[in-house]
Design a protein around this nucleic acid. Structure first.
Length: 543
RNA sequence: GGCCCGUUGGUGAAGCGGUCUAACACAUUGCCCUCUCAAGGCAACAUUCAUGGGUUCAAAUCCCAUACGGGCUACCA
């Protein structure tokens, strides 16, 4: 029996030889420096902050070198796959307007990009290794494996299938054939050429050089269901897809020796590696990785629902991704994330604790820089989905809404009081009579004067066409004539002599308008609301 | 048990042997401005870089130990 025939028995029904794939996926035509990266999630559910962070770096470095970033779905473990998980990931990215150059859902010539569709490819290479006597079938059962592990743990020796513990290595062909005939299940393991006493060095682009012992464990390459393990698939895929930079979570650092071994045994050129630290969450004294199941605020949809734009999340990720991004962005407020060059050696090495305050601060700055028209469009789209009533209200008189959104906006130092679209309503509701009428909030406490004084002001002094300075001078003059004091010191000498300070009169106007003692410049509120509505609110207030 | 990685204030984090009583940003607090709030301006907030040793004229920075946190050690990724 030839080696090839033997391999055919171990892995039957494999359509092509490995050389077929080498030809099918030729080297990419790349210029010096162009990077090929990939984001490779397993389909365990929606996109969350952690996955977005990893994909963000993948996308950015590819983009800035005019390279390629692929979306590859790693679904070699059926247990991890969630229903609609694959489509869910694709949809999430598309909804966030994040586009990969190629990959699952995005096309490309190096697919399929779903690992379960690549079974034949992995097996073709596994057969190559079998033919070269670099891999062998292992019939060990789960119970047997557990036994070995327990024995090793008890004896305090290294755990794993290596050297003498890899007993199926020595099975003769006849023995193997016999077991197969008996229907025994098996996996294919690599015959590790490594020696634990040797060292390998990972030249990590983020963490620097890391020295580790060489891998001597006979890693499984093909599981009994015919699918590859992560490690084997990684080597094959990133070789065939010609990935230049593998950017992944740092939980992979310790498996690097296995990966290096695979690339060597298969005769592949190694990609470069960058291991990123996960985004975490503090829970009391412990810091743990953000979890899809436990942390609802890890889901991107959580922020979408609040009306925090993707761009804001990307800005946040950019600031934690490279430490000098924030400074750069502050100095270049008109530029976009894509104008910044991200570098691996500026990525954080240790875990980063997710900071919602920081995110919100970035969001406020982002919203404060928007034009009122842009804000309106975003608000329109958002409320259409989450608050139809409010959507009708803001659209009833779009010009009016635009004016309101523009209050203290189009100036050198705009207000920063909106952090999410969901907050807009609660900050401007009182500018809409229909919302004001329905509002049941109590008026905040205020030093009120005689109702007639306010009415006098509105009827005889107020003019919606006044500019701000004129407006205030008139208010001041009117207030003083009605026994309000304009001078703090004078007022303090004998407060009982006055109705209050001029500021008290303004406060009264404010409360009448919006019930609260905080609002943007009253000048604008009065100007846009108009006399009739104001008189109506005076009546309401004094009732 | 073995093998890796990390540890700077409430938070992110700069720092790569002297210029560190430690940049910057967020948060917090106070003052100023002011019709309120927001914004803005000013100021406060680590005399100390997990702990203990060592190297050095000099250490947050280099070395070693310890503690704590994290990862891997699966026919999971």
């Amino acid at each position: 029996m030839t080696n090839k025939e033997y391999a055919d028995i171990l892995l039957p029904n494999v359509e092509h030889d490995w050389t077929y794939y080498e030809e099918k996926y030729p080297k990419r035509d790349l210029k010096e420096g162009q990077m090929v990266t990939r984001f490779a999630p397993s389909p365990t559910g929606f996109v969350h902050m952690g996955s977005l962070y990893a994909s963000f770096l993948d996308l950015q470095v590819a983009k800035q070198t005019n390279g390629i970033c692929m979306l590859r779905i790693e679904d070699t473990d059926g247990k991890r796959t969630v229903e609609n998980g694959v489509q869910g990931i694709i949809d999430d990215f598309k909804n966030l307007n994040i586009n990969f150059t190629e990959g699952m859902g995005f096309g490309g010539n190096y697919g399929p990009y779903l690992q379960s569709d690549r079974k034949d490819i992995y097996q073709a290479y596994a057969k190559k290794l079998i033919e070269e006597d670099k891999a062998y079938p292992c019939f060990a059962t789960e119970e047997y494996l557990n036994e070995i592990r327990e024995y090793q743990a008890q004896k305090k020796i290294r755990i794993g299938i290596y050297k003498k513990y890899a007993k199926d290595r020595d099975l003769s062909r006849d023995e193997v054939l016999e077991k197969i005939k008996n229907g025994e299940k098996y996996v294919i393991r690599l015959k590790s050429p490594g020696d634990f006493d040797n060292k390998v060095v990972l030249h990590d682009l983020i963490k620097g050089d890391i020295e580790m012992p060489e891998n001597d464990i006979d890693e499984v390459i093909i599981k009994s269901d015919g699918l590859p393990t992560y490690h084997f698939a990684h080597a094959i895929d990133d070789h065939l897809m010609h990935t230049t930079h593998v950017i992944r979570g740092d939980e992979w650092v310790s498996s690097y020796p296995k990966h290096e071994q695979f690339f060597k045994v298969l005769g592949f050129e190694m990609p470069k590696y960058a291991h990123i630290a996960p985004i975490s969450k503090r829970e009391g004294n412990i810091v743990r990785k953000l979890s899809k199941r436990k942390d609802e605020d890890a889901a991107i949809s959580y922020y979408v629902k609040k009306g925090i734009p993707t761009e804001v999340i990307r800005l946040y990720l950019a600031t934690i991704c490279n430490y000098d991004f924030e400074e750069w962005y502050t100095a270049n407020p008109t530029k976009s994330i894509d104008d910044f060059t991200f570098e691996f050696n500026k990525c954080p090495i240790g875990v980063t604790v997710f900071d919602i305050d920081k995110l919100m601060s970035i969001s406020k700055i982002y919203f404060s820089r928007l034009k009122n028209t842009t804000l309106f469009d975003m608000l329109d789209k958002y409320t259409k989905e989450y608050d139809v009533d409010f959507n009708n209200i803001i659209n009833k008189d779009k010009e009016y809404t635009l004016n309101i959104l523009n209050i203290e906006r189009d100036i050198e130092r705009p207000r920063k009081d909106i952090g999410a679209l969901e907050e807009v309503k609660s900050s401007i509701w009182y500018m809409y009579p229909e919302l004001f009428d329905k509002n049941t909030e109590e008026y905040a406490e205020v030093k009120a004067c005689d109702k007639q004084i306010v009415i006098d002001y509105l009827n005889n002094v107020y003019d919606a066409n006044d500019d701000q300075e004129t407006w205030f001078n008139k208010v001041k003059e009117f207030a003083v004539n009605n026994n309000y004091c304009a001078d703090k010191k004078v007022y303090k000498e004998d407060p009982d002599k006055y109705n209050g300070m001029v500021s008290d009169f303004c406060a009264l106007l404010r409360i009448i308008i919006c019930k609260k003692n905080q609002s943007p410049n009253i000048y604008y509120l009065i100007k846009y609301l108009g006399k009739d509505e104001l008189l109506k609110r005076v009546e309401l207030f004094y009732k």
